[in-house]
């Protein structure tokens, strides 16, 4: 089976950038969830930036994975930042009233500041 989602991680000390590309849905969201939680729980990252420039679709299971990531970050006083949101994922976060709950950066450069 072909993969619907590509996940690549750049780690630099306590900061990780997770580059995500593809659709985040019921099939692919468990892998994304596991990746995010691993960075906080096992790798003890202080800042995890999710680069969503390559994501044009996210469903409620994907949103649930992001919320879990944010919960884990808050628990550890870490930061979980979403960046480079395309129109469709942004619309889903707006519909679910989560744009103000997440820390959202317009670009990866901004998220790294």
């Amino acid at each position: 089976m072909t993969k619907d989602l590509d996940i690549n991680i750049d780690r630099n000390g306590p900061i990780s950038v997770v580059h995500v590309s593809g659709d985040i849905d019921l099939k692919s969201s468990p892998e994304l969830r596991a990746t995010i939680l691993d960075l906080f729980e096992n790798r003890r990252q202080e800042r995890v930036i999710l680069n969503l420039a390559g994501v044009h679709y996210i469903d409620s299971s994907g949103v649930a994975s992001l919320v879990e990531g944010l919960q884990e970050a808050k628990k550890r006083n870490a930061r979980f930042i979403l960046c480079a949101l395309n129109e469709a994922p942004r619309h889903v976060l707006e519909l679910t009233r989560l744009t103000k709950v997440f820390e959202v950066a317009p670009s990866l450069e901004e998220a790294l500041k």
Binding site: S60, S61, A64, E68, Q71, T96, R97
Partner: peptide
């Protein structure tokens, strides 16, 4: 759904 609940959206 504006609270930090994981699922149900």
């Amino acid at each position: 759904p504006d609270e930090l609940r994981v699922g149900g959206r």
